[in-house]
Design a protein around this nucleic acid. Sequence first.
RNA 1: UGAGUAAGCUGUGUGGCAGCGUGCUUUUGCAUGAGGAAAGUCCGAGCAUCACAGGGCAGGAUAGCUGCUAACGGCAGCCGGAGGCGACUCUAGGGAAAGUGCAACAGAAAGAUACCGCCAGAAUUUCUGGUAAGGAUGGAAAGGCGAGGUAAGAGCUCACCGGGGCAGGGGAGACCCUGCUGCCAUGUAAACCCUAUCCGAUGCAACGCCGACUGGGAGGGUAUCGUUGGCCCGACGCUCCCGAAGGGCGGCUGGAGCAAGGCGGCGACGUCUUGUCGAGAUAGAUUGCCACACCAGACAGAACUCGGCUUACAGGCUUAGUCACAAG
RNA 2: CGGGGUGUAGCGCAGUUUGGUAGCGUGCUUGGUUCGGGACCAAGAGGCCGUGAGUUCGAGUCUCAUCACUCCGA
Length: 119
Amino acid sequence: MKPKVRTLTLNKEFKRAYYRGKRRVSPYFFCYIVKNRHEGIRYGLTASKKLGNAVERNRARRLLRTAFLTMEFREKENRDFVFVARERILSAKMPQVAKAMEKALFSPEGEKEAPQKTK
RNA sequence: UGAGUAAGCUGUGUGGCAGCGUGCUUUUGCAUGAGGAAAGUCCGAGCAUCACAGGGCAGGAUAGCUGCUAACGGCAGCCGGAGGCGACUCUAGGGAAAGUGCAACAGAAAGAUACCGCCAGAAUUUCUGGUAAGGAUGGAAAGGCGAGGUAAGAGCUCACCGGGGCAGGGGAGACCCUGCUGCCAUGUAAACCCUAUCCGAUGCAACGCCGACUGGGAGGGUAUCGUUGGCCCGACGCUCCCGAAGGGCGGCUGGAGCAAGGCGGCGACGUCUUGUCGAGAUAGAUUGCCACACCAGACAGAACUCGGCUUACAGGCUUAGUCACAAG
RNA sequence: CGGGGUGUAGCGCAGUUUGGUAGCGUGCUUGGUUCGGGACCAAGAGGCCGUGAGUUCGAGUCUCAUCACUCCGA
C-alpha cells in the first residue's frame, strides 16, 4: 500500500537539503524539505553527539523513523526530507512526535522560507 | 539484636496486535535477535598484509617468590611491609659501598663539621685542644635506650632492641630461625641511571575476489567560473584529486565457545564425558499501543573475534567469617 | 580503528623541561591628576592550578586513574 521509501546516505544529499531546502521547526526536531527529480520519497535522519549517548541517539532516530513511516503521501511525490533531532525528543512519547510531524509536514501552505538564522 | 568485613548472583517478567534486521521456506509463515559492563580503548593474543640471514644499538614496557595461562602489565597461593580489637584490607615491593644530580627555608653543620654548652690548658676575656651527653633548627643530626666508664665524653665496654657480614639449619623459592662477629657512609631511582626479562611494523576502512584503459570515476570544490536557461533545480564543461577511493561479494561468526556432571589441585586452573548452537547490521536492526504482576525498573546499545584491567550502576537476593550486648 | 594536544585570576596566556616564592597583559577596586571624563601615575583585591588517589619532608610541576574540550590519520 505504501510506496517503498528510500533513505539518504551521501553527504552530498544532506548538504543539498541544508542549502536548498525549506526549513520547518518543531520542539522535537528540525526538518529540511527539498524537491528531487524522479527519486520518490526519501528521508535522512541525524542525531548529533550533543544529543546524548548512543542509547539516546538511537531512540531519537527510532522515534523519527517510526513517525515518518506512518505518514501518508500522495502517489507521485518527489521529495527529500532530512530530520535533525533536538534534545526535547528524548522526553517525548510516540503520539506527540507523530502529531508534531504531521503538523510540520502538511500544515499551512504559508510555509516559511528558512527562517531567520540567529547569526 | 546491633555494628562491621568479604565473596557471588540478578539486572523487570508474561501475553496480545502492528512494525524492523537476519536465516529458512517461499508469498504465506516459522525460527531467532545486545551487555555485565556491549563503554573507556589501558594491556595481552588470534587473524591478515608488508618486511625479515644472524646479531647489536636506540626506544618502550614490566619489577618480591612460586605457579596458572595461547599470552599478559592479568589471576591464584605464599613471603616481606602498613592499617584494623577482629573478620579482613592495602601494598610500582630489584639496585643508593657502579657513577652523576638534587635536598628550598631554617640550622654551626645535610655525611661532613663545633653555634651555645661541657671539660682541660694557656690566659683574664679571649685563644688552643678534646667532646655528639644536653640545647636549638629541620622531614631527616653521628644506630635507640639503660648501666658501667671518663677530666668531660664517645659502641670505649656490657644487657636488650635494630642494622650489616659470616656460618649452620629449614623451605621449590621469596624468605624464616639459631649462633658468632661487631657497628662508616641520611633521603630521593613515580631524578638521570644500572641490572634482569619481554617487544618487527600496521591494523577488518587489514586483506582477497568481481567489474574498468577506445580511458574511467556513482570522489571533492564551485550557494561567488562558463554553456544551456527569464529564475530555481538539474545536466554538461571547468578545476582539484584518485590509480580502484565508489559499488557488490567474501573476511563475518562454530569459538583458547557455552551448560551440566565426574576427577586432579589449597587455589588460579587443568582434564574427561554428555548435551548444545545463542545477533551479524552497513547511516547501521529490539519499537509503538494495550492488559496483568511486583513499593516502579539504574548504568547503558554489538560493528573482525577472544582473555583481562579500569570506570558507571536503581533495586533485589544468597553465602561465609568477625566484634559487642543479652539469654541458654 | 589508531595517534596527539589543552585545562592556572572575570578574559587571553606564562610558569611544568631541572619539584620548594604562582606571575604577565587586560579588566575590577581605591587614591592622585582634570572644571568633569578619557588617557596617565600610585596602591590594592581577586587562584583549594579540571577532579580523585599515590610517590616525596614538600606536587601547578613526577606517576596512575578519571572528566571535559579540541586536533590529526585511515
